[in-house]
Design a protein around this nucleic acid. Structure first.
Lengths: 220, 220
DNA sequence: ATAATTCTGTTGCATAAGCAACAAATTATA
DNA sequence: TATAATTTGTTGCTTATGCAACAGAATTAT
């Protein structure tokens, strides 16, 4: 399941000039990685924040079996690090460069402590970090709202209603494939397809490709 | 479902003297409420943090039907506010005094901005806030881990395994009733009871009252 | 353009899980 | 202590859902 940090940018509201100042204050210099290279492994105690300055990368979980899942897709401006990953065990999680990229690492403690050089931007940075974490938490909360319904039908409708209200419209586009949706709502894909078919037949929804339309009020 | 802010204290590491200094810096004075009184209603845009200095309170969701659920139990040192509640809609959520209590309100923005008087404690405060939010997010994440299993059996075992590893023991005490557990893992209580019985019979677990023991490795 | 891979759509079958309804045990409250 | 309220334990019935297995569409890679 992909869990993007889409909500806000860590350095929004901070000029490029001040960004540079802060980086020298944080004593952080960019590092280069070529496509396919491992940027880092997650360790539970580590307290650094990574920032993708250029290029793309992925956060990957590798299972004992050797199979892998992409947990997150990172692009320019994305941040990563164990502090943003709230699971207890970070075993087998690593960040891999998807293209040639430059990455900065900042000590988490340094972000928390105020610095004298750029204090006014610093508080902006902290506010941004809060909104990123809060946003992640909101996404988790939303996911729970969907998962805590008992039936596939209810999970689907809960998900659709959230998307609809986010879009301020009864019509919206699914952000991922139907297979991924089944994964997100944690149900068997074929059973989900069956339920979608029923919902269509009963006139609750219309769905072609990834375009969904809610047709009538669903009373749970 | 009760969602306690148990992880860390907002003012841990800050002396009582400095706490007072900060409060005057925040221009926050304590307000008194008597048992049963409504302390506040949640509004999505509001950006204040509440702190229970003395007494107890509850965060309650009131449905259109008039029925209520306790979302959180607050005691001395607990904090509350819409910034710690990650759901989209805050409709019908209010904080009610469970006993006579004194409460402080702090503007969220003031916490973010650094102040000159007590800067060194301020960064401690911010770090504490981060750990509170991260901890909440971790709880949500844990909940998703449980809910994303397909069967009642798998959900139960996932939950038990988390509790076991938190306790560093195959034996642990459930933090809530079996009914509440059914609620937490979002399944029918009677079906859950049936599954617990089976798990007992098959020798996976032992459970009397709220004491659970994991007896053999469960291979999911 | 062709091959390979992933995604979509469908079905039969077995059973897990929801629902309702009840009694007994436990805990809370007056 | 008596009474109320909640929690636990159980069962029959029905059906929703997981699983396996398949074929065709749509992507993506070569």
């Amino acid at each position: 399941m992909i869990n993007t940090v889409s909500c806000s940018h860590m350095f929004s509201g901070i000029s490029e000039e001040n960004y540079g100042k802060m980086m020298s204050c944080f004593k952080s210099s960019p590092k280069k990685y070529s496509a396919g290279e491992t940027i880092c492994f997650y360790e539970s105690k580590k307290r650094t924040v990574g920032i993708i300055e250029t290029g793309r990368a992925v956060v990957v979980k590798t299972f004992y079996s050797g199979s892998q899942t992409i947990l997150e897709q990172l692009s320019e401006g994305s941040i990563f690090g164990e502090v943003f990953y709230f699971h207890a065990n970070t075993d087998g999680i690593s960040v891999i460069a998807a293209s040639n990229c430059t990455v900065r690492f900042i000590d988490y403690g340094k972000i928390m402590k105020s610095c004298h050089n750029a204090c006014e931007h610093h508080s902006q940075l902290i506010e941004n970090l809060f909104s990123i974490i809060s946003c992640k938490a909101a996404e988790l909360s939303e996911h729970i709202d969907v998962l805590s319904h008992r039936t596939i039908r209810e999970k689907l409708m809960a998900y659709f209603q959230i998307q609809s209200s986010k879009n301020n419209s009864t019509q919206f586009k699914l952000p991922f494939s139907l297979s991924a949706l089944a994964d997100y709502i944690s149900v068997d894909r074929s059973a989900m397809m069956r339920e979608i078919k029923k919902l269509k037949e009963e006139g609750y929804i219309d769905i072609k490709q990834k375009e969904v339309t809610l047709l009538k009020e669903y009373i749970q």
